[in-house]
Design a protein around this nucleic acid. Structure first.
Ligand SMILES: [Mn+2]
Ligand SMILES: [Mn+2]
Ligand SMILES: [Zn+2]
Ligand SMILES: [Zn+2]
Lengths: 149, 149
DNA sequence: AGGAAAATGAAATTCATTTTCAATTAGTTC
DNA sequence: GAACTAATTGAAAATGAATTTCATTTTCCT
């Protein structure tokens, strides 16, 4: 098993213990699969992946485990234009935004300090104290954009 | 009636005629109320407003008229963190983004050319052809932020 | 006025998300 | 390891916003 993954699974265990929750076989399997695949998955999608090898694990548990991972800081929820709740692994520090292709649905991540600073500056202008933000660029990716120009 | 509003209602009528759709009493009332109040309303909210004075107009028609206004370019749909679809009047050119207060829910609009340029630049870096974007800053407004510092 | 096509509104449907609940399991204590 | 308690599980039901259906009504042509 991946170093990164097992480290994060350990973090989850710590979080559970601290809160008086229990570590279970299901949570372990779900977290493992989720952390390993690392995409922007819906609960449904992850459930389908997992149930290929673990038919006994129910959708509800996958759903709840993703919520749990979010609360523990190991995952974040994302809702893009299709209005489905997606989850992605997240380490506590890193932040990124997304470019989303309107044709193929591919999701590209980016990080831009200038953008972050500019956001902060704009918020301050209005006396706002920014906590989070949402920044998504929708368009056509290299593969999907018209070949001309 | 407001100059702005009647001008936009005229635009709607033109749009309907062009597409072979019909101008109706209901559409007129709904569009009028929507354009006049000019906020970020859900279909439900607008319906409640309208049904105070027009109990005969159904929710479905309000919902459909808002969709129609969006298609005609006179309104845009917005989905903020609460995941409800909201509508706001929009003239074809203007674009703006939003600051949303996590405590009182107030929505402040802003426009920032630097931000727009930066977005375009980032997208280009990845070979993306940007069509739209979503940019929302969540935090605490002047009224709601902690009085200290 | 007459007729065709679109609009209306109540009710039903959809669909992701969330909750419920009875049965099972984990973790603690003896 | 057995007993106990509280949390977890998973199937099924509930929720709720968004959307569709359909019988009836209205608009817009001629
Ligand atoms: Mn991401
Ligand atoms: Mn706005
Ligand atoms: Zn693409
Ligand atoms: Zn506020």
């Amino acid at each position: 098993m991946d170093r990164q993954v097992s480290e994060k699974k350990e973090q989850l265990r710590a979080f559970l213990k601290e809160r008086g929750f229990k570590s279970t076989r299901q949570r372990d399997i779900i977290a493992g699969q989720f952390l390993r695949c690392g995409e922007h998955l819906t609960a449904e999608e992850l459930y389908k992946q997992i149930s290929r090898t673990h038919r006994e694990i129910g959708f509800t548990t996958v759903y709840r485990t993703l919520k749990l991972l979010s609360k523990s800081g190991l995952a974040t929820e994302r809702v893009f234009a299709d209005n489905l709740t997606r989850y992605e692994p997240l380490s506590s520090e890193d932040h990124h935004d997304h470019l989303i292709c309107l044709r193929c649905g591919s999701i590209t991540e980016f990080e831009n300090p200038k953008m972050e600073k500019l956001q902060k500056r704009i918020a301050e202008e209005f006396g706002f104290n920014t906590v989070t933000h949402k920044m998504e660029l929708y368009g056509y990716c290299r593969m999907c954009r018209k070949p001309d120009k």
